[in-house]
């Protein structure tokens, strides 16, 4: 192998753990997206992947490039920041859109109260 051999064992184990944990969270969240019954439940599922799921993968990447480069490489932080800030915004907008549509169509399964 080429560049991955340059990483010391302790760091490799740490990176591997972060990668496995992060990607498992993303996978579970996406399975939830398929499995859960109603829209308002499904809106919870992607946040699994976008909070600590993305955090784990991005931390692993930061660690790898920092060790390979011999200096702290932090630009992956921007990806993590971007995901954790934009995902709630889109999900919140989608939640409100769904609420608006449910009220307009007077959906029976999820009747949100309106005063």
């Amino acid at each position: 192998m080429s560049h991955l051999d340059a990483i010391p064992l302790w760091a490799a184990i740490l990176i591997a753990l972060l990668l496995v944990a992060g990607s498992s969270l993303v996978l579970i969240g996406s399975i939830g997206l398929v499995r859960l019954g109603s829209f308002y439940e499904r809106i919870h599922a992607p946040t699994l992947g976008t909070s600590w799921g993305a955090g784990g993968v991005v931390l692993a990447s930061m660690l790898t490039f920092s060790i390979l480069g011999g200096r702290p490489v932090l630009h992956e932080l921007i990806i993590a920041l971007f995901i954790t800030i934009t995902m709630p915004v889109t999900l919140m907008l989608l939640g409100r859109a769904a609420l608006y549509r449910d009220r307009a169509e007077k959906a029976t399964d999820e009747p949100p109260k309106r005063v």
């Binding site: 192998m1 490799a12 591997a16 990607s23 996978l27």
Partner: peptide
């Protein structure tokens, strides 16, 4: 050694993703 661990973890992560 560390490369093998990383390749296994990366493969797992890529399949999961």
């Amino acid at each position: 050694m560390s490369a093998q661990i990383l390749v296994v973890a990366l493969t797992f992560a890529q399949i999961a993703l």
